[in-house]
Nucleic acid binder design. Structure first.
Lengths: 111, 111
DNA sequence: CATATAATTCGCCATATGGAAAACAATCTC
DNA sequence: GAGATTGTTTTCCATATGGCGAATTATATG
């Protein structure tokens, strides 16, 4: 896990972490409140937060004894961009396929 | 790794696997050709293919001694859909924020 | 101060992951 | 059929992951 996308996608590969992102998209929250919906221990939950932070999805600051987490929605861009690129390659390919059909099969029709 | 999105995103969390998807978007290919650009052994590469297959990104058939892999571009939908959902939550939130600014701070201006 | 709360650290464990080498199997091709 | 090519299986290894409970550190609050 070194690359940006590596850690970004890896962070998404877990339902707990996706849920946390979803929750945080709705607004910042402290750790304990974030953890409440899940049935895992706090230490484990903290690990998930670290993965999310490392993946660039969240950030957090501590004031007093409470750490407040908030999402970094910019991360959506990187992920979306990669998917869009793949779609572009795919589209280009299907275009070439259309070309092929047009130049070859259509020619065949004309025979 | 049981959920759809879990395995789908997990498959994306590795540069080799993302590259394979990119390559396959361009058209089907046999295993050895797919593996050529990478500096890992075939057995290791096969594991990556299995992860991609399990994540729903590729499919493959064997004819004679060659196994041909092709991408399943539908998988893009699931991933894109999740990201779009998050963006929607985020947008709803910023809308509420705009409401708040309008009803409260703007009122303050009028004082 | 005594206690409750919020978060963190520390071991510990089972399983998964990404890598390798070696041997094996199947199928072309000469 | 001999030999090359293409995948596959097996075994092994180091490290990462996701989980736990227990102990610890801050910081509020009665």
């Amino acid at each position: 896990m070194e690359n940006n996308l590596d850690s970004a996608f890896h962070a998404l590969a877990d339902p707990t972490r996706r849920a946390v992102i979803g929750r945080l998209m709705d607004g910042p929250a402290p750790v304990t409140e974030l953890a409440r919906p899940f049935e895992i221990g706090l230490p484990t939950f903290l690990k998930h937060l670290r993965v999310l932070e490392q993946g660039g999805w969240i950030r957090s600051e501590k004031r007093g004894r409470v750490r407040t987490c908030h999402v970094r929605p910019e991360r959506l861009h990187a992920a979306e961009r990669w998917l869009a690129e793949q779609r572009a390659i795919w589209d280009a390919r299907t275009d070439r396929l259309a070309d092929y059909v047009e130049t070859h099969l259509a020619a065949e029709d004309r025979r």
